[in-house]
Amino acid sequence: MANYAILVDDRYCIGCNTCFYKCVQENRLHEEASRSLHRTMVFLDQGEEPGKYHHRCMHCENPVCAAVCTTGAMSKSDYGAVLYEPDICIACRSCVLACPYKVPQYDEEAKGIVKCSMCAHRVVQGNIPACVEACPTSALEFGEAKALRAKAEKIAAEEGLVLYGVGTNVMVLTTKEPTSLGYPKAPVVTGKRSVLGEVFASLIDE
């Protein structure tokens, strides 16, 4: 099976959150959603500048959540998705603390984590994730990671866009600096340190 990725072309996103609700229905997360927990959501006005912020798991190539997970409940699959196994999670919340994208949400009632699975149950059947299928403007694209990354880089270069999500399997193309829209500052993947090291380094107030 290929290594898959999702490309979000924010230029075509209109913030309708059809992706959010399709995800809720696909994964039967209504109860969690009613308690403000979500796997993906588009925020319409979170940053300093008008724009949209896609809050979703970035399915990092080297996920920090998996690195710090004390039980192996978080793991990287060989098809790109970072998966979560609730049965072995001990709710230590290390992933919540460590994730540079502020993705994992702790579910107080279930004593577990809410996080996107890249619709692994669909991908393994040869289908695309539910959010990608549902997007009314086709702002989301799903495909082989290397090819999608190359496409994203080409569009970014040609159109003068910012590519957010280097080092992940979820890439976002924006016309503005992502942090001005509400995105967390992405960890710099320099290769000199592991992502885990980058995150820990950034925690220290020098």
Partner: peptide, 12 residues
């Protein structure tokens, strides 16, 4: 956990 630990088709 930085490496793959789950085989395809085995995850909940």
């Amino acid at each position: 956990n930085l490496k793959v630990v789950r085989a395809f088709g085995k995850h909940s």
